[in-house]
């Protein structure tokens, strides 16, 4: 800054700077309070028992706090949802950037925006009243609720993320690469699958990881369709409870200030660490994708 800037302008600049710091301060604040509330659990409960036991009976006379079942539940549901969403998402992204004419691409884009805007409780309703009965009819499941239904709903919910990032990364691939491949006598599909997608790889992976983050952090929709039993999921049709579900379910009846309440914040820490790790991955891949498209 030059010295002749009027003092009130410098004051306003300072204000703007402070506002710019709100996000990072919030992140630090959230991290601090979640850890501050959750870490004291380990005074009473063994760290490894917390992570590696699947016995969750926080209100028993001899309470036990093991969240392994929920960690597995979260990972299980997220994995299946990605297995569903990734092929469909990438294919739709390919369609939008490579095959669709502007009219269709705009129609699909509006559709994707709507899909992204639908609140998670509505996905939950849809899952419970539409998907679950189908699962119930097609399989041996009694309720139709559980890992599979939750995964289908989550798969639909993360589709927009994957589609958007795929489309954006494919569009960022230089035209020269496409022409280079076509000029060698490759079909359009060979060009897409062997040149464009590998070139857009980092961006697409970043989108998938972003999808993982959304999937693992989603609460309401899974809460309504996953069955919510605090047990180790045994298969696709098994009821399950994820980390997020554990927090939202138990906070309702945990006594304020009890070890039970603390354990829910500790569950939050585990979820938070998952998310931070995922964020770092996204950041890494985004950076890599940026480097790629901007050459070297």
């Amino acid at each position: 800054m030059k010295n002749d800037t009027p003092s009130h302008e410098r004051f306003i600049e300072l204000m703007l700077f402070l506002f710019a710091c709100v996000s990072i301060i919030s992140v630090i604040g959230i991290t601090f309070f979640i850890f501050e509330e959750g870490l004291p659990l380990f005074v009473h409960v063994n760290f490894f028992e917390f992570l590696l036991s699947s016995d969750w009976s926080p209100t028993a006379d001899n309470p036990s706090f093991g969240i392994l079942a929920f960690i597995i539940g979260s990972i299980f549901v997220t994995t299946i949802s990605l297995i569903i969403a990734v092929p469909i998402g990438i294919a739709t992204g390919v369609f939008m950037s490579e095959y669709a004419n502007p009219k269709w691409s705009s129609i699909v884009r509006k559709g994707i925006e709507l899909l992204a805007g639908i609140p998670s409780v509505i996905y939950g309703l849809f899952g419970f009243f539409f998907i679950a009965p189908i699962i119930r009819t097609l399989t041996s499941s009694d309720t139709g609720l559980g890992v599979l239904t939750a995964s289908i709903i989550l798969g639909i919910m993360v589709l927009p993320t994957i589609i958007n990032t795929t489309e954006v990364s494919l569009r960022a691939v230089p035209r020269e690469l496409k022409e280079g491949s076509l000029a060698l006598g490759a079909t359009y599909w060979q060009t897409i699958i062997r040149t464009l997608i590998p070139a857009a790889r980092s961006g697409i992976i970043a989108g998938i990881v972003l999808g993982i983050g959304r999937s693992i952090g989603e609460t309401m929709a899974v809460l309504m369709v996953a069955g919510n039993s605090p047990i180790m999921p045994k298969g696709l049709l098994s009821n399950t409870r994820t980390l997020t579900m554990n927090i939202v379910t138990d906070l309702k009846y945990a006594e304020v200030g009890s070890l039970h309440e603390t354990s829910l914040f500790t569950t939050g820490i585990v979820l938070f660490i998952f998310i931070l790790f995922i964020n770092l991955l996204v950041h890494y891949f985004m950076k890599k994708s940026l480097e790629r498209t901007q050459g070297k």
């Binding site: 996000s23 990072i24 604040g29 952090g217 609460t219 906070l251 950041h283």
Partner: peptide, 16 residues
């Protein structure tokens, strides 16, 4: 910070 904030799930905001 902004990016991280965007990725935090809503239940964690709820806890905070």
């Amino acid at each position: 910070g902004t990016e991280t904030l965007a990725g935090i799930p809503s239940i964690v905001f709820g806890l905070f």
